[in-house]
């Protein structure tokens, strides 16, 4: 018998009904009597499966449905249609067995008691999640050491810096040893050093414990550095499922070849090889079809004083911009609110 998947979504959908009105006093008064609602499909027929132990990144622009998906997986939101399963459980039922096996870290939400030291919340979680004292102590020591928290866990949470607080939140989420870890924008507002530290930690945690990690982030670098698999969601629909390399190749198949040389050829001279996208002598870069890369490399290496030749994929931010810019017409329908006025 095969292992139950960490996550299985079957045509999952979530529709929100939100009231809407124009700005201004007149509209406010009118809204007292006639309310206009719009229905928004935040998530639409989403289907995918994640085996246990995988690190998956959910990518998408603002309002794409990433966080809504995550909240349905954590049992906070009830789906409007379709089915979600996490470790074989239906999350919306919030069975205690499932809640003991998952954790959700929200970059903008805190679970630690604001005016008490983090240790107080950790102790509460130990009891609530039914973790043996010795196991708890072992994990706590390990996490505090790994995240270099030291005495920070003994100070009232309100006195901590954002980075320290996020680390303490992460400890709180991991102390019960969750088998599936949902991270929603965990690095939001952090400086670069802190982001790197957090990524290293999550990767190491996944390697050591085999926990499944599902991450959403606005920072492409987070996702690229951490996740072996990418799910691109836009307009509530799945647009891509695969590795980051495959995503880049599919969206921007051209490779970017750059070089520095004493004399650069003109755009016309290179037209047969590819398109020049940057020209700042002594450096230039051109986008080249993969099969023509050897030819381009040979040609550029032969330039007088040629050095620093590099072949790379297009920058990830550019790839994503391009991906979201080329929406299919049926996705547009899903992304836009379907306006249906109704009376309150």
């Amino acid at each position: 018998m095969g292992e139950v998947p960490a996550i299985r979504l079957d045509r999952l959908g979530k529709r929100f009904r939100v009231s809407q009105r124009e700005p201004g006093l007149r509209a406010a008064l009118r809204a007292l009597f006639v309310r206009t609602h719009v229905e928004i499909d935040a998530v639409c027929e989403l289907s995918f499966e994640v085996p246990q132990g995988q690190r998956v990144g959910l990518l998408g622009p603002n309002g794409a449905g990433k966080t809504t998906t995550l909240k349905m997986l954590a049992g906070l939101l009830h789906p409007t249609s379709g089915r979600a399963q996490v470790l074989g459980h239906e999350p919306a039922r919030r069975s205690h067995e499932l809640l003991r096996s998952i954790a959700l870290v929200m970059g903008q939400k805190r679970q630690l008691s604001w005016d008490l030291p983090a240790l107080d919340t950790y102790e509460l979680n130990r009891v609530v999640f039914d973790v043996e004292r010795s196991v708890h102590q072992l994990r706590l020591t390990e996490l505090v050491e790994l995240l270099e928290l030291g005495e920070v866990v003994r100070k009232p949470v309100r006195t901590l810096s954002l980075g320290e607080r996020m680390k303490c939140e992460l400890v709180a989420a991991l102390l019960h040893g969750p088998r599936v870890l949902f991270l929603d924008e965990p690095t939001i507002g952090m400086d670069v050093a802190m982001q790197l530290a957090l990524r290293d930690f999550v990767r190491e945690h996944n390697r050591r414990t085999g926990a499944t990690v599902v991450l959403t982030s606005h920072y492409m670098e987070d996702v690229a550095a951490l996740c072996e698999r990418i799910l691109v969601i836009d307009g509530g629909r799945l647009r891509f499922d695969g590795s980051i390399e495959a995503l880049v190749r599919r969206t921007r198949p051209l490779r970017r070849v750059s070089v520095r040389a004493d004399a650069l050829p003109t755009d016309d001279e290179l037209r047969a090889l590819g398109q020049v996208v940057e020209r700042e002598p002594p450096r230039m870069a051109l986008d080249v079809a993969p099969e023509r890369v050897p030819e381009a490399v040979a040609r550029l290496l032969a330039l007088p004083g040629s050095h620093d030749l590099a072949v790379a994929d297009a920058p990830l931010e550019e790839v994503m911009r391009e991906l979201f810019a080329m929406r299919a017409p049926e996705d547009e329908a899903g992304a836009e609110p379907s306006s249906r006025g109704s009376d309150a």
Partner: peptide, 12 residues
């Protein structure tokens, strides 16, 4: 403000 989510994630 969504703080209820924190309580809903605990097995209590």
């Amino acid at each position: 403000n969504g703080d209820l989510s924190v309580l809903l994630l605990r097995p209590v």
